[in-house]
Design a protein around this nucleic acid. Structure first.
Length: 508
RNA sequence: GGCCCCAUCGUCUAGUGGCCUAGGACACGACCCUCUCAAGGUCGAGACACGGGUUCGAAUCCCGUUGGGGCUGCCA
């Protein structure tokens, strides 16, 4: 091991996940706070994979960590280092601890340890093997915790936390195979990598005094310890620590559901920290500028998807057309999009961008906003379709619309005016009259502004969809004009002119 | 059980002894705007866990209680 690196110069922090599953939003928050601190202090952000347990780590999980950090934009300055490649460093540390008399070999089986723990008044393992003088080889190695005294954790967010040594058992630092355990490898690496600030979840607070004991055993009683900051836990609605088993915590799933990395970062930053001005929606640069470790609070925070969703909508609305369009990319082709790729028209979509952007909270809502433009027939929301077309006014509106749209100027404004006039003619409000037209064209009762949509859809598709809807409306209203042997073409109003069947005006 | 942490609206939080009849945001409700839906605007309901201290004065400091959580592995 190299000489100790004191807390001089710029800070060095590390994010040290273990690759035991998909990437967790709680891990993302820890990584973010480390990264923010490093960036705002001009420090170094180190990525270290804690894969000392060979039976659990999997390469794909390491890839998951790296890609998740990359998606969030939390770039590491060093690493990833892997503990699995640093065995010699730990063995060397164990040698030194052994020869320094800090360790003893323990031959107790798991069952024996459990019995001793249960029957003994002192917490944890009772130190049974401490004075047996067993050989080092083939045995687990335990750290000899002093019986007297207290170890104090100096924590930036929690203040000084005291742990009486009497409450700390003689913990295992190396397996009987010689492999190091987390608490040892973690400290050895922090020392070796010159880590100045340990920023991690509060669940690690109870193991911190053990780490400090090791740190001092390795470097001496007056060793320069890192500055600790234990972040409040992220909890579920039942106020329990977020769990991979029961809670939706996979970062990837949020990405796949159309959440923006900048929204995720913004939201995560607000869990346990707040901007001094109270501002909530802000770019990452602002987070970097204002983040202070000392301002992190102490109480657990519920990961609230509803608020994340709101944050996402805010970030979406703040995006430029190009950025929004490119963020939409994955949602504009199968399997996320329901239309055949060859029918998609970039120009048409780009015209829709400003209308869509302010109506979606997540990107996976985008396809449903525009699918009617790229599908031969709109996808029908059957409930909406039936309900709207069953209105008494529907056939008249559709007939009049067909007549009007056959000849009017094909622009959103002209269509708006024509439809408004139609409503007046029928003694209806425009808001009511537009409903059957909307459902005829888009299959849904809600969606982007109707007249802009119509302009892009084009006269031909508009008219044929209106006619199909009229036919359907007459079927559900038998009293109106029963029996339509010839289909929609025969129900055009007498005074209406035939549609010229012009070519699509879409995206002209 | 032991050790440790935490405690302001349903949720995230502001608040560091008087500026608090406790502020903001999300969610919720009403209204306005409006071609639907959003967005936006206005308004509304909604919290200092409890009990003792200290103090002229406490959400803020101290003690206790209660509640919640974490840790307690030859996992990390």
């Amino acid at each position: 091991m190299d000489a100790p690196v004191a807390n001089l110069g710029s800070p060095r922090v590390r994010f040290a996940p273990s690759p035991t599953g998909f990437f967790h939003v709680g891990s993302a928050r820890t990584a973010l706070f480390n990264w923010l601190f490093a960036r705002q202090s001009g420090g170094t952000f180190v990525l270290r994979i804690e894969d000392t347990d060979k039976e659990r780590g999997r390469e794909e999980w390491v890839d998951g960590i790296v890609s998740a950090l990359s998606w969030l934009g939390l770039d590491a300055d060093e690493g990833p280092y892997r503990q699995s490649e640093r065995q010699d460093v730990y063995e060397n540390a164990i040698d030194r601890l052994w020869s320094g008399g800090f360790l003893y070999a323990c031959a107790c089986s798991r069952e024996e340890v459990m019995e001793r723990t249960r029957s003994n008044a002192t917490p944890g393992y009772d130190g049974h093997c401490a004075e047996l003088g067993l050989a080092r080889e083939g045995h687990a190695l335990r750290f000899r915790v002093p019986e007297q005294g207290t170890t104090v954790v100096l924590d930036v967010v929690r203040g000084d936390v005291e742990f009486p040594h009497a409450s700390i058992e003689d913990f295992v630092v190396a397996k009987s195979t010689g492999e190091p355990l987390f608490v040892l490898a973690n400290v050895v690496d922090d020392v070796d990598m010159g880590i100045s600030h340990v920023i991690r979840g509060e669940d690690l607070l109870p193991s911190t005094p053990k780490g400090i004991l090791l740190w001092r055993a390795l470097l001496g009683e007056d060793a320069q310890l890192p500055c600790f900051a234990h972040l409040p836990m992220l909890v579920n609605e039942r106020r329990q620590k977020l769990s991979k088993r029961r809670d939706p915590v996979a970062l990837e799933s949020y990405r796949d559901r159309g959440y923006l990395p900048e929204a995720m970062v913004n939201y995560l930053a607000l869990l346990g920290w707040s901007h001094p001005s109270g501002r909530e929606v802000m770019p990452v640069e602002e987070l970097v500028a204002r983040f202070r470790l000392e301002d992190v609070n102490r109480s657990p925070a519920f990961f609230d998807v509803a608020k994340l969703t709101h944050m996402n909508a805010e970030h979406l609305r703040a995006m430029g057309d190009d950025a929004f369009a490119s963020a939409c990319r994955p949602w504009l082709e199968p399997p996320k999009a329901p239309w055949p790729p060859e029918r998609f028209e970039e120009k048409v979509f780009r015209r829709m961008v400003p209308l869509v952007r302010e109506r979606v909270a997540t990107l996976d809502e985008v396809p449903a906003m525009v699918d009617f433009l790229f599908l031969a027939e709109p996808l029908r929301d059957e409930d909406a379709w039936r309900a709207v077309l069953a209105e008494q006014l529907a056939p008249a509106v559709l007939r009049a619309a067909i007549a009007l749209y056959g000849s009017c100027e094909w622009s959103a404004q002209a269509l708006h005016e024509a439809t408004a006039a139609l409503a007046v003619e029928l003694g209806s409000k425009l808001s009511k009259a537009q409903a059957p037209i909307r459902v005829a064209l888009t299959g849904r009762r809600v969606g982007p502004p109707l007249f802009e949509s119509m302009e892009l859809l084009g006269r031909e598709a508009t008219l044929s969809r209106l006619e199909a809807a009229l036919a359907a409306a007459l079927r559900v209203l038998p009293g109106d004009a029963d029996k339509l042997p010839g289909g929609a073409d025969e129900v055009l109003p007498a005074g209406g002119s035939m549609p010229p069947g012009g070519a699509s005006q879409a995206a002209g």
